[in-house]
Computed example of a mutant assay.
Amino acid sequence: MSAPAILLCTVMLLVPLVLTFVLSFNAYDAETGPKAGTFTLEHYAAVLTDPYYYGIFWRTLWISGLVTLICIVVGAPEAYILNRMRKPWRSIMLLVVLAPLMISVVVRAFGWSMLLGPEGLINGTLVALGFAKVKLLYTETAIVIALVHVMLPFMVIPVWTSLQKLDGGVANAALSLGASPITVLRRIVLPQIMPGILSGSLIVFGLSASSFAIPGLLGGRRLKMMATIIYDEYLHELNWPLGAAIALLLLVANLVIMLGWNRMIERRYKKALG
């Protein structure tokens, strides 16, 4: 029964990944393009020895980490409030949380560019209040704000799903025995929702690190992240092997960070339950 799913995954994921891996080792000539059948490590050497790429890698990873942290701080309480709501307010709030997913990322990015621009609503409000304009568009701040807006539902839903499995009687019993609400949240609720926080953080970090539309539209041409660099190498420079090498290095970095984060959270989760 699983054969069709395995076949689909192989065709749609593994085959392109293998082809990208092979392409990353092909030599490149500016006049003739990639040379199939050749083998070279120059693309990986160019990326791993150039401080320019180090800076872009670092910017991509720290922005993704910051977005993930903000989504945890905002999304976990939001999911808890959502879980405590009664019908029909719960359904209305859930619709509000999921509403951004119904709009194209490009449309949302353009919306944020209008809000954060020099003549946008935010700067207009600051001027009306007597403050000077601030530069928000084409900055890392703009990228973080827009990514949090886009990624927040991917944190709220897993945490809310974990809360659905939580037995409310346990928390009530702890309160009846004299535990404070803070202690109940820290000792009972938080350990139970750690799987949801882990799932949400992995999704948010992975999607943020590979995001293209928001960094491309709100970061501009000078403030680059890894996805925009890969795009430039593929479509502007036509250096497909170098773009493939950068994409694979980004994939490896993501996997190392996400697997390390997964192991750390799971260890703390087991310790809290044990």
Rank of each mutant, 00 (worst) to 15 (best):
Thr139Lys: 03
Gly130Leu: 02
Leu137Met: 03
Ser162Asn: 07
Val134Met: 09
Gly130Val: 01
Gln164Asn: 09
Leu129Phe: 01
Ile188Gln: 10
Pro158His: 13
Met151Gln: 15
Met155Thr: 04
Gly168Ile: 02
Thr141Tyr: 10
Ser176Leu: 09
Glu140Ser: 13
Arg186Glu: 11
Met151Ile: 07
Gly120Ile: 03
Gly124Lys: 06
Arg187Asp: 13
Ile143His: 05
Phe131Lys: 05
Ile122Met: 07
Ile143Pro: 07
Leu185Thr: 05
Ala179His: 09
Ile143Thr: 09
Gln192Cys: 04
Glu140Leu: 05
Thr183Ile: 04
Ile143Ala: 07
Leu198Asn: 10
Gly168Phe: 09
Leu136Gly: 00
Pro181Arg: 09
Ile157Arg: 02
Ala128Thr: 07
Leu152Phe: 11
Gln192Gly: 03
Gly168Cys: 06
Met151Asn: 14
Pro181Thr: 08
Ile122His: 05
Lys165Cys: 00
Ser199Tyr: 02
Gly196Leu: 02
Ala128Gly: 01
Leu177Arg: 14
Gly196Cys: 03
Val148Arg: 12
Ser162Pro: 03
Leu129Cys: 02
Ile145Ser: 08
Pro191Cys: 03
Pro191Asn: 03
Ile122Val: 15
Val159Trp: 04
Asn172Arg: 15
Leu163Cys: 05
Lys133Gln: 09
Thr141Ile: 12
Ala146Ser: 14
Leu126Glu: 04
Leu163Gln: 03
Leu177Trp: 11
Ser199Pro: 00
Pro158Cys: 10
Leu136Trp: 01
Ser176Asp: 15
Leu190Asn: 00
Thr141Gln: 10
Gln192His: 13
Val159Ile: 09
Leu185Met: 13
Leu163Glu: 07
Phe131His: 08
Ile182Tyr: 10
His149Thr: 02
Ala174Asp: 08
Leu126Val: 00
Ala171Phe: 08
Ala128Val: 00
Arg187Gln: 12
Ala132Val: 01
Trp160Arg: 01
Leu137Gly: 00
Pro181Gln: 12
Ile188Val: 15
Gly178Val: 08
Ser176Gly: 15
Leu198Phe: 04
Pro158Gln: 12
Phe154Ala: 03
Ile188Ala: 09
Gly178Phe: 09
Pro153Ser: 04
Pro153Met: 09
Glu119His: 13
Gln192Thr: 06
Val170Phe: 11
Ala173His: 04
Gly196His: 08
Leu147Pro: 07
Leu198Gly: 11
Gly124Met: 05
Ala128Ser: 11
Leu147Thr: 07
Phe131Arg: 09
Ile182Gln: 04
Val144Gln: 11
Gln192Glu: 14
Val156Gly: 07
Val159Ser: 06
Gly169Phe: 05
Ala132His: 06
Glu119Phe: 14
Val189Gln: 10
Ile197Met: 13
Gly169Trp: 05
Leu198Pro: 04
Ala146Ile: 12
Tyr138Gln: 03
Ile157Leu: 13
Ile157Asn: 07
